[in-house]
Design a protein around this nucleic acid. Sequence first.
DNA 1: GAACTATATAACCCTGTTACATATATAACT
DNA 2: AGTTATATATGTAACAGGGTTATATAGTTC
Lengths: 129, 129
Amino acid sequence: MHRPKHCRCWHKYPERGWIQFLIMRVLYEKPTHGYQLLEEIEKRSLGCHKLETGSLYTLLRRMEDRGLLESKWEKTENGPDRRVYRLTSKGIEALRMGLASIVKRKKLFEDLAEFYHEKFEKPPKGGEK
Amino acid sequence: MHRPKHCRCWHKYPERGWIQFLIMRVLYEKPTHGYQLLEEIEKRSLGCHKLETGSLYTLLRRMEDRGLLESKWEKTENGPDRRVYRLTSKGIEALRMGLASIVKRKKLFEDLAEFYHEKFEKPPKGGEK
DNA sequence: GAACTATATAACCCTGTTACATATATAACT
DNA sequence: AGTTATATATGTAACAGGGTTATATAGTTC
């Protein structure tokens, strides 16, 4: 009676925090500052997903508040300073769990994709008017 | 200068409205009432996603408000009446667009899945401490 | 009255967007 | 020397939408 029906983990639903996974995935490989992340994200999302700067910095801020990321300022010679983010161990764990959740639903994605091809791409056969 | 940077379609992000796609996908095939949808959704999501009744009816209501669905009450012999929903043409179009968006990002999903297997599933080789 | 079928809604939290605002550096133009 | 433009770089408040939670109701069957 007292068991929680859902754990309250923020990553419970893969369709939530989608972009955060992309961010963490990049950060997993190397610490990166925000502006550079914009390009990386766009590249990895194959141009499908253009992040506005406001979105990104808001997300980074919140992720750091949540302890998934850490940042430090980095001096540059020729330009404004940068804030470089890196994944914390908590962030790595969150990424691992989140991706596991996505992987688990891969079939569901494929199923929807198949449905799409079946119903919306196949040319209607004669008499289908 | 005056072009909108993003279209404001509600289905812009496939990771949003995820569950609504599942709902519409079921309704595409046949008109269904809410309670039955609960079972269908759970089945199709392979048990990964258990919808609470509150979530479903909230979604159905909002989708009807938006013109994606239509409903009519159905008398039953042995139980409370049911509200049967069906997809409108607007709903079909939304489903088509939403799934197209998902399909377009299939690579992205696969990429994340691959990353997961690579980084989080492969056993570390000797000396990897 | 317990269990199952069936629907409903208000309050809430989280995610991501929008629409701004700011600061540094470089290059070009006047 | 001052202005303007552009690229680099960060930031935030207010908002909209999606899904959950907690709770309520009602009919039917046993």
